[in-house]
Nucleic acid binder design. Structure first.
Lengths: 219, 219, 219, 219
DNA sequence: CATGAATGAGTGTTCATTCAT
DNA sequence: AATGAATGAACACTCATTCAT
């Protein structure tokens, strides 16, 4: 009556692709695409070299699968955080920041941007995909919040396209930074502090008020 | 006596290391460290493969030399912009931003951060060096300006260490972004606009004023 | 009692080895031994990869089984055509030629010589076997007919050993040729025409008559 | 004054491609294309594995170069034997046979047909090339001689296209045979004897005379 | 018996590095 | 100093073979 008794050996089998993916992510992140040997991935995944090729046709295919697998859930989360909330634009930005912090909090996911950045040159398709699916959607989401804030007068008149990038930059940079200099850094700043300071600074900077910058004249 | 005739043939020779360095930079930037073949560099530099090894002991040594050569002048410029100027903290930040913009404006130099980021994993020494010589010094410079502004009351009370990173992030991110998605990007924002918006936002956000963020309730 | 119900499911099973053999022959012929993958054979035979190993211990064993299976019936036919017929030597040669034509007419069998030739180097045992069982027996058969014809004065005095080879060569060559250049050939000659012309030429050449070749002076 | 003194080390260098070609031919002939490892070829040529790739882009390219190098001189010889001789058609055929015997006499060249036959399936381009450059030209040459003989009444009325193939078959077959069963054969016939018997048989068979075959009626 | 997922030895190819000229 | 032919270690990928189910 049981619907085929998956006896722990099969459970292993069905999880293989996922296990391989994770091992590959870790290795790619740790050593870069080129320096990663398929055998390393295999060993880390606990399988033989040839097994990798049962699931992924080539090293490049594996790499792309790794990135896309991560992106899938990342994008979903991002969009999920959007919603049609009744919050003020400022609070929605805070919420988005929280969301991004959550994503970046997972060290595996934090490594993605760097992975894409480092290898975009060799994987034009991947760069395009990432740009379209993550960059555009993320910037679009934030841009819409900013535009809304400007429309309601909650923010001063700024270009949402430009400031969306400014909003995202420190978060991404933080993730890249962390995975790059983690082993070297002496006086590190907790990501949470950085994020909080950023949001506050950003919102203050957007507040409507004195005609232009508080002091000095634009060069 | 015969110290004379180095009129173009020898000048060429003496400039060799520099030419090799530039060829190497271009190639590393264009294809990444791993995908760059020594032969590519040699051809681009107009020398034979073996000649490279007269100046640099290995591909890795060449890579490090490339980065360090760029850093040398970069750091010098950065420090130069420092000085003990009589300007307000805000204007000094503007000046620093100008300086960074100038550096990033050179496409060769703009590619450096990405190069370091992408290969820090394989070159721990380089990462350490870059962190100490560029990151620390850059952040220190900006941090001191911020601290001064806080001390004089020009800025509200913020942590200079944290906000120095916030100040730098969009600039670096811009440079990395550009070299990563340049070929893909549809709606790009001119770097100058981005930089200007950033500085204004940043300075507004630092202006002393209402106790905390202007709106919203959060810790 | 229950010896009954093998009505199609079991018949399939019992025919397995034969089906595998045929699939293997087709694949070996089509792609050569080395380029044939066991999986190709399995798919063509409609079984799983592992199943092949239930019947044949290795790829080489399968190859040898394929050749030997074909040879078995081939040899039998050849010998069958022999007999102690009351025909003249010439007509017996015609009959043998007919027999060979029939064999070569089956494209699967036509491919055999080429298969053996191409792989004799890697299968010394097979070469030996083929030589002994097919070459020797075939040549022997024809040689005996020739010797008989010489003895009866139907043919001029020739060396049966030598001329047996001359008799066989065009037939074999035709088979090999066809499977080699079939896809390329522009002006092909129908095998039947070739065979007929060959036999006539051969018999005319054997006719007793003027001391030596009809014209020309040579040793 | 000397025009660069090639000091025996350079002579070696310039002969490399040729040496590689010969080593490759021997190995391909001995083991077949697929079973030949580049390392075998390299060792036999006395160079390192990588050196092969300085001259030939891939194993396939090497194989094709081997065949074409042999063909070049083979074709030239064949055409050279043609000429506009004043000999009778029969004697010209004898001359051609001599030429082919000379070619086949070189064991390396004798191996070519088998090499092409065995691998034509995997190298369609090669098959096409060989067919056009060797088969067509060879058959054409012989066909023209036959046609001439028919026209002058030296031969009976036969189809030159068909009989050209019959003329060539035993020679080719002999070459293939030899390289295939050399190690196995017990009672071998000296190629020279075979060739001589073939030519005599062929010429006798072509002699004009009794209306049709000397005896028996065509089936 | 049958399966097909898993294995890992084997091979083509690349490329940093050396060294005779 | 400069060259570039030669080297050989390293690695992606294939596929015959095995074995748990």
């Amino acid at each position: 009556m049981e619907d085929a008794p998956p006896p722990a050996a099969r459970r292993r089998k069905e999880a293989r692709p996922q296990e391989v993916l994770e091992a590959a992510l870790d290795t790619f992140v740790g050593r870069g695409f080129a320096a990663t040997r398929m055998e390393d991935v295999a060993r880390r995944a606990g399988v033989a070299k040839g097994t990798l090729y049962l699931y992924y046709a080539s090293k490049e295919a594996l790499f792309e699968a790794v990135v896309q697998a991560m992106l899938g859930t990342t994008i979903a989360r991002l969009e999920g955080d959007l919603g049609e909330s009744p919050l003020s634009a400022g609070d929605r930005l805070r919420a988005v920041a929280q969301g991004m912090a959550g994503i970046i909090g997972d060290p595996r996911r934090a490594a993605l941007p760097k992975l894409v950045i480092a290898n975009a040159g060799s994987f034009p398709g991947l760069a395009r995909f990432y740009y379209r699916e993550v960059v555009c959607r993320g910037l679009g989401l934030i841009g819409r919040i900013l535009a809304h804030g400007v429309a309601t007068g909650e923010f001063r008149a700024i270009d949402p396209t430009v400031h969306a990038r400014l909003f995202v930059a420190p978060v991404l940079m933080g993730a890249v930074w962390q995975t790059t200099f983690a082993a070297v850094e002496e006086t590190s700043v907790p990501p949470a502090d950085l994020l909080h300071a950023h949001v506050e600074l950003f919102l203050r900077g957007l507040a409507p008020g004195a005609a232009d910058a508080p002091a000095g004249e634009r060069s």
